[in-house]
Amino acid sequence: MSHNSTQEQQVEILIVDDHRLLLNGTISLVGDRFPRAQIRSCQTVQDALTEVRKHLPDLAIVDLSLPEISGTAANVEQGLGLLKVLMQDYPQLNLMVQSSNVKALIRIIPEIDNHQGGFTIADKSVPIDTFLTRMEWAMQGLTHTKDLQTDLEVKPEWLEVMRLAFEEGLQDKAIAQTMHKSERMIRHYWSKIQDALSIYPEEGKNMRAQTQIRARKIGLID
Results as ranks from 00 to 15, higher is better:
Glu111Met: 05
Leu95Phe: 05
Glu68Trp: 13
Phe131Asn: 00
Lys155Met: 12
Leu164Phe: 06
Met162Leu: 07
Ile121Ser: 00
Gln140Gly: 07
Thr26Cys: 06
Asn24Cys: 11
His188Arg: 11
Asp129Ala: 15
Thr72Leu: 12
Gly219Ala: 15
Gln171Ser: 10
Glu136Arg: 14
Ser65Val: 12
Asp113Phe: 13
His115Thr: 01
Lys146Val: 03
Gly81Phe: 02
Ala104Val: 06
Leu82Asp: 00
Lys124Met: 05
Met179Pro: 03
Ile61Arg: 01
Leu29His: 12
Cys42Met: 09
Ala196Gln: 05
Gln116Ala: 12
Val62Arg: 04
Val11Arg: 10
His144Val: 14
Leu93Ser: 08
Lys124Arg: 10
Thr178Cys: 10
Arg208Met: 09
Leu152Asn: 00
Ile121Gln: 00
Gln46Trp: 11
Leu142Glu: 05
Ser28Asp: 14
Ile13Lys: 04
Thr26Asn: 06
Val102Lys: 03
Asp195Phe: 01
Ala176Lys: 02
Pro91Cys: 10
Lys217Ile: 04
Thr50Asn: 12
Leu49Asn: 05
Glu183Asn: 09
Gly118Val: 04
Asp113Lys: 15
Asp63Ala: 13
Val52Cys: 10
Met185Val: 13
Asp32Gly: 10
Ile213Met: 05
Leu59Arg: 01
Glu51Ser: 14
Gly219Asp: 05
Thr211Gly: 00
Thr44Phe: 07
Gly141Lys: 07
Glu111Gln: 09
Leu56Gly: 04
Ile27Phe: 07
Lys146Pro: 03
Trp158Glu: 13
Leu105Phe: 12
Asp58Cys: 10
Gln78Met: 15
Arg20Leu: 15
Met96Val: 01
Ala60Cys: 10
Asp222Ala: 09
Ser5Tyr: 09
Leu80Met: 09
Leu22Gln: 11
Asp113Ser: 14
Thr178Lys: 14
Ser65Ala: 09
Ala122Gln: 04
Ser41Ala: 12
Met139Tyr: 02
His115Met: 00
Lys155Ala: 15
Leu49Cys: 10
Thr143Met: 05
Val126Glu: 08
Phe34Pro: 01
Trp158Met: 10
Leu21Asn: 07
Leu86Asn: 04
Leu29Val: 08
Leu64Gly: 03
Gln46Ala: 15
Gln10Tyr: 11
Met139Glu: 03
Leu197Tyr: 00
Ser198Tyr: 01
Ala74Glu: 10
Glu136Gln: 14
Glu203Tyr: 14
Ala138Gln: 00
Arg20Val: 15
Leu21Cys: 06
Asp123His: 09
Ile186Pro: 03
Ala174Tyr: 11
Val76Phe: 04
Asp58Asn: 12
Lys205Gly: 06
Ser99Thr: 03
Pro91Asn: 05
Ala104His: 08
Leu105Asn: 02
Ser2Ile: 08
Trp158Gly: 03
Thr145Asn: 07
Thr72Ile: 14
Leu80Thr: 03
Leu142Tyr: 04
Leu49Thr: 03
Val62Tyr: 04
Lys192Asp: 05
Ile128Thr: 15
Asp47Pro: 02
Ala196Asp: 00
Leu23Asn: 08
Val102Glu: 06
Lys54His: 08
Pro35Gly: 07
Gly141Gln: 07
Glu68Gln: 12
Asn75Lys: 06
Glu157Arg: 14
Lys181Ile: 07
Ile39Trp: 03
Met135His: 04
Ser65Gln: 08
Pro67Leu: 11
Thr120Ser: 06
Val76Cys: 09
Leu197Phe: 02
Ser65Met: 12
Ser65Arg: 13
Arg53Ala: 13
